[in-house]
């Protein structure tokens, strides 16, 4: 194992610590953009510390499913971080580096929290879980079309190979890549639970999507769930920076590219949240369909040999 793979593994693990910073950064920048002072970007860490010291609750009725859901969701999200390519390489944890498996591991948390929602029988939790699973139907279909575009240069769904093929940025000469960028952007918004698909700041039960299933949790469970949500955002952002965006150069330069793209994403997310209100739930599929149609057009464009 070379020093570079060790460093890449280190960055993968550092994601565990860095993920809340991304969420905090978006919140801070959003507040600034909206003319408020806002909490510091480190606020999520303080929240995690505060929640870690609190006692939990045990809703009536609930069984082991409610208690087990959080560790399963957190473990699956952590495994997803280990599948990410960093600067076009990844250490061999023996877990593979497949794009669909990564997406599947992110879905495990959705399953676990939906099961916990049924366990407590809470209407608001179930409402959020049902919406989350419903939106996932369209997101998964969209992701597959986007993957069909992004996997073409490497002829592989191996994330390391895809990342290597995307490094030079050659693919951006084709309209297919632009279509893929649009589609992947929508996937990021949905997976990270951001506006216009979901509002991470909502405190009204009736409007919650991702926040809904966390409603019955408190204390350490809630802290873990907050971390898992941040880690999911981190995972999709790193994924986009590696397999979609150009990052040429040597290993160290590629790491700088990665950091730069993450900062760009934070700015973009903050701006999008500032100018874009949440969409009506029933209109979300139209948005995602639209993304899938454009991605399909990108595919058709490639077949016809259209070049930008």
């Amino acid at each position: 194992m070379t020093a570079q793979t060790i460093a890449a593994g280190g960055v993968e693990l550092a994601g565990v610590a860095l993920a809340p910073l991304v969420v905090g950064g978006v919140q801070w920048l959003k507040a600034r953009a909206q003319g408020r002072r806002g909490a510091s970007a480190l606020q999520p860490y303080r929240e995690l510390r505060r929640l870690w010291g609190r006692a939990g609750v045990r809703p009536e009725p609930s069984s082991g499913v409610y208690a087990l859901a959080v560790p399963v969701a957190v473990a699956a999200t952590f495994l997803a971080l280990l599948l990410l390519p960093i600067a076009s390489i990844a250490p061999d944890w023996g877990l593979g580096n497949d794009a669909l498996v990564l997406f599947g591991l992110l879905a495990v948390g959705r399953f676990a929290l939906a099961a916990a929602a049924w366990d407590t029988g809470s209407g608001f939790e179930l409402m959020g879980a049902a919406r989350d699973l419903t939106i996932a139907v369209f997101v998964e279909a969209l992701f597959l079309v986007v993957l069909a575009l992004l996997a073409f240069p490497a002829h592989s769904t191996d994330l390391v190979a895809m990342s290597g093929a995307a490094a030079s940025g050659e693919a951006w000469r084709e309209p297919a890549q632009w279509a893929a960028a649009l589609g992947l952007g929508l996937v990021i918004l949905a997976e990270a639970g951001r506006r216009p698909i979901d509002n991470p700041d909502t405190h009204l039960e009736l409007t919650m999507v991702h926040e809904g299933p966390t409603l019955e949790y408190a204390g350490r469970d809630l802290a873990l769930l907050h971390w898992a949500a941040a880690a999911r955002t981190w995972a999709v952002l790193v994924l986009a920076a590696e397999v979609l965006l150009p990052h040429p150069g040597a290993f160290a330069v590629q790491l700088l590219w990665l950091a730069g793209w993450i900062v760009v994403f934070v700015v973009l997310l903050a701006l999008a949240e500032t100018i874009q209100p949440k969409m009506r739930l029933l209109r979300v599929p139209v948005l995602l369909y639209g993304g899938a149609v454009i991605a399909m057009l990108g595919l058709a464009g490639r077949l016809l040999g259209v070049a930008a």
Binding site: G56, V57, P59, E60, A75, E216
Partner: peptide, 23 residues
């Protein structure tokens, strides 16, 4: 997944959890 789930459960520890009705 199984090992990590066990580790997270251990890290969470056996803390007091107050029974409460669902919201």
């Amino acid at each position: 997944l199984a090992v990590l789930t066990a580790l997270v459960t251990l890290a969470r520890g056996r803390r007091r959890a107050a029974p409460a009705p669902v919201w």
